[in-house]
Write a protein that binds this DNA or RNA. Structure first.
Length: 494
RNA sequence: GGUCUCGUGGCCGAGUGGCUCAGGCAUCGGUCUGCAAAACCGAGUACAGCGGUUCGAAUCCGCUCGAGACCUCCA
């Protein structure tokens, strides 16, 4: 299939025409969260950005397998021998089982993303579920001479890799190993490594370390970067289309992933690397250590000292989509309030559109060129700010029809409705929020409706249409309309 | 210190050699309304500073200032 989509590839530093390896199938892997604390808004921005990308790829006809991992084995705190992973550290402090921590924050993560109307990924694999594969890859790299064992731990040999692949380490981040050497800080426990640039594939666990697995080298745990190499290739193949994540993962995480995959089979693992930019709060990077941080819950309830009022998930989503995913974005009351008004204006226009009566001619807008501009914006590296700007042209037209200044034919009205439905709801993933959506009651209604719609979806999937239709009819009696769409069912109160 | 990115009007935020250089919010004027809100119409204000390239630069180059990211877990 042919698409006009261009994406900015971090690997080349340029916008490139998107060409899927096995069109119409697309494989996309996004680095997920480490589930040792509540997901914060910076994380949310990344996952909302990739949700939009997933939605758009699907919208233009690709069949996307979207894999996003859950890091439940933790990452090392630091490079030192004494390093322990974040999950077991937290578990010890709170005297919980590590998997209890994992469960709690995984549920929190899913809950928050659902509030933001993110679609679930196709596969959400966990690091602890792929220890066998990680040991396997470590064994293979070791056998090929690109890693070495040292005191029960296994390290990736960057120098050997660079020799074999002609200085490939640094191809993504633009770093040179020589620079790294001269700038690496002196850390404790570096003695096991032959070279400071080397990184762990397997770490021997200290006696205090709770999370541990048996391996040929020691009782220990996998290195920082191994899970993504293993899980992406397991579910998407040795070479796949898109790998994404936050910019802060570019180095060392993604660089090491590439090295591990190349060490395995010599192939370029990923065609397009996409990186989302950071979110700041009142001009400063969000950081737990400085207290300049905001959790989604604090934002929705207004229970925080950073912003003047509360904001709904859809307002925040809209706000984030008003900036390009590769630009940094600052969170502030003024900016969010402006976004809130804009979002309501857009949503109200869409309600107005439903009640518009067609005329004999379309006057006031060149619908076809408008639609081309809308799609053109998205095809240009998912430029949602331009898309939204152009959507407001549609808002002016809709309000103009309502006001009697413009008219629209029945077929154009249909076209406009389907266009807006597709781009606003399916691609941007926005949805209507009731007047009182901030109250607990409404949230409960939303959750209940999700359960009901999910039951109906399951009935439809098993071709139990009688049950599915019964659910729809009963909802209809309550003046609730169910709307089945490509991206799932939606509902609204008439 | 090294690598890199960025600096757009009152706020947020696109664009990136010329074609009156988006859009949202705010402000001002008008229409509408019993009033208000909403909606609609209209208006203004900008490209950090200095220098250079060019017929022409917000857009390219250099320098200065300022901000941020990565170099260590981090979306």
């Amino acid at each position: 299939m042919e698409s006009k989509l261009q994406v900015y590839n971090s690997l080349s530093g340029k916008k490139e025409k998107f060409k899927a390896i096995n069109a119409p199938n697309v494989g996309m892997y996004v680095c997920g969260p480490t589930v040792y604390s509540e997901v914060h808004l910076g994380n949310c921005r990344t996952f909302i950005s990739f949700d939009m990308i997933f939605r758009y790829l699907t919208f233009i006809g690709y069949k996307v397998r979207y894999v996003r991992n859950i890091t439940d084995a933790g990452h090392l705190e630091n490079d030192a021998d004494e390093g322990e992973d974040k999950i077991s550290k937290k578990a010890r402090l709170t005297e919980l089982e590590p998997m209890e921590i994992v469960q709690k924050y995984t549920l929190d993560f899913h809950h928050v993303l659902a509030l933001f109307n993110n679609l679930p990924p196709s596969i959400e694999p966990t690091a602890t579920g792929h220890i066998v594969e990680q040991i396997g890859l470590t064994e293979q790299i070791l056998k090929d001479g690109l890693a070495y064992e040292s005191n029960g731990s296994v390290y990736f040999d960057v120098a050997a890799y660079n020799k074999k692949f002609e200085g490939a380490y640094g191809e993504l981040s633009g770093r040179k190993v020589e620079d790294l050497l001269s700038n690496t800080r002196t850390l404790e426990g570096q003695s096991e490594k032959r070279d400071p640039a080397d990184f762990a594939l397997w770490k021997k666990a200290s006696p205090m370390h709770i999370m541990r697995w048996k391996s040929p080298w020691s009782d220990g745990f996998p290195g920082w970067h191994l899970e993504c190499s293993v899980m992406s290739s397991k579910y998407l193949g040795d070479q796949f289309d898109i790998h994404g994540g936050g910019m802060d993962l570019k180095f060392p995480h993604h660089e090491c992933e590439i090295a591990q995959n190349k060490a395995r089979d010599g192939k370029k693992p990923v065609n397009y690397w996409l990186h989302t930019n950071m979110l700041t709060l009142n001009g400063q990077r969000m950081s737990k250590s400085t207290g300049n941080t905001l959790l989604p819950g604090e934002l929705f309830t207004g229970d925080n000292d950073k912003l003047s009022k509360s904001f709904t998930p859809m307002v925040v989503r809209f706000f984030m989509l008003q900036a390009h995913y590769r630009s940094s974005l600052d969170f502030s009351s003024d900016a969010l309030e402006a976004a809130e008004k804009g979002f309501n204006k857009l949503m109200e226009a869409l309600v107005v559109l439903e009640s518009i009566e067609p005329s004999k001619a379309t006057i006031g807008m060149d619908l076809n060129s408008w639609i081309l501009k809308l799609h053109g914006a998205m095809d240009d590296d998912f430029n949602t700010p331009i898309l939204i700007a152009n959507l407001f042209e549609g808002v002016k037209f809709i309000n103009g029809i309502k006001y009697g200044d413009f008219t629209i034919t029945a077929s154009d009205l249909k076209l406009m409705k389907s266009t807006l439905d597709g781009l606003v709801f399916q691609v941007l993933g926005l949805k209507h929020e009731g007047e009182n959506s901030k109250s607990g009651n409404d949230e409960m209604v939303n959750d209940l409706m999700q359960i009901i719609l999910d039951s109906r979806l399951r009935a439809r999937q098993t071709k139990d249409f009688a049950s599915a239709d019964r659910i729809r009819d009963l909802l209809s009696d309550l003046n609730i309309t169910v709307k089945d769409g490509k991206m799932g069912a939606e509902w609204e109160v008439n």
